[in-house]
């Protein structure tokens, strides 16, 4: 279980990193490396080069500007957990991040790395879907903004071009009427969940609006459930109907942990619990 041989490059600027990425089509970026290193040790991945972007200051930092919370791609999970800006403006992330792995992994794993890796069982992709985030990428021809809805394209696949690097995540700041919920069912603390739900929306009285339900560990990628969400909006909200609509929104898969049917049943339990915790009429 030793990694295969590869070359190591550590560019000193983002532009250099993008150039190197273009020059080495079989290279991989490494940020925190918490997923990549395991797959290298297992020889599941055999890149020609690793391009280490872990020290690029341009990708760091958490800021709020004009109603947008910007999280640098290299923000480590431990930083996300401790950030007062994130707690104030995207409390869903503060809640969710506790479920990501363990302290010794959160110290290295990065926000952007988790999104770019696009593991269907990871928490953060579902969170940025729920938060209606915009992901900012930089390539040879400059910056490109990709909505979270468009970003996750398949199993470990994203809309990033081969020579693009995810640099930041823009999230609309939570408003006073914002509500959120997060629950996952993991066998052991820090494990990937069997099913998980990150939800965000707005509440007026006991009614929800702009609800987004981001699911993970259900199907091949982090997925929104728009039909179920629609069934929970406004005065006609019905949890029962939303629960039914999940069958149209989600395509749960079979794996070692659970069958697709069990997953669907568990997804309905989570939906009920998350919505109930929001204290709305449904």
């Amino acid at each position: 279980m030793k990694a295969p041989a590869f070359d190591y490059l550590r560019p000193s600027s983002l532009d250099d990193a993008i150039k190197l990425l273009g020059a080495h089509p079989d290279a991989k970026l490494i940020a925190g490396g918490q997923s990549l290193l395991a797959s290298l040790n297992l020889r599941l991945s055999q890149p020609s080069h690793l391009i280490d972007i872990g020290r690029l200051a341009e990708l760091r930092g958490i800021s709020v500007n004009g109603g947008v919370l910007r999280i640098g791609a290299l923000t480590r999970h431990a930083e996300t957990m401790a950030s007062p800006e994130i707690a104030a403006h995207a409390p869903l992330l503060t809640q969710a991040i506790h479920h990501v792995a363990h302290a010794a992994i959160r110290s290295r794993g990065t926000f952007g790395g988790s999104l770019a890796n696009a593991d269907p069982a990871a928490e953060l992709p579902a969170c940025v879907l729920a938060l209606n985030a915009t992901l900012v990428a930089r390539g040879p021809s400059g910056e490109r903004r990709i909505t979270a809805d468009d970003f996750f394209t398949g199993l470990f696949e994203t809309a990033l071009a081969p020579d693009e690097i995810l640099i930041a995540i823009d999230i609309p700041v939570a408003t006073p009427d914002g509500v959120h919920g997060f629950q996952e069912l993991a066998r052991r603390s820090g494990d990937y969940a069997i099913v998980g739900l990150a939800a965000a929306g707005k509440r007026s009285g006991t009614h929800l609006s702009e609800l987004r339900l981001g699911w993970f560990s259900v199907g091949t990628k982090a997925t929104l459930a728009p039909k179920a969400a629609a069934a929970l909006i406004g005065p006609a909200a019905s949890l029962a109907r939303a629960s039914e609509m999940l069958a149209e929104d989600l395509e749960p898969h079979d794996d070692l942990q659970a069958s697709g049917a069990t997953r669907m049943s568990l997804a309905r339990v989570l939906l009920k619990r998350v919505i109930t915790a929001m204290e709305v009429a449904a």
Binding site: Y8, R10, I30, G33, Q34, L37, A38, N41, L50, D52, G54, A78, A103, A104, I105, S107, R108
Partner: peptide, 15 residues
Amino acid sequence: LDGEIVRGCLVLAVQ
């Protein structure tokens, strides 16, 4: 590593 705990098997020596 730099004051924080890490999995040594998930960090390259060059990093």
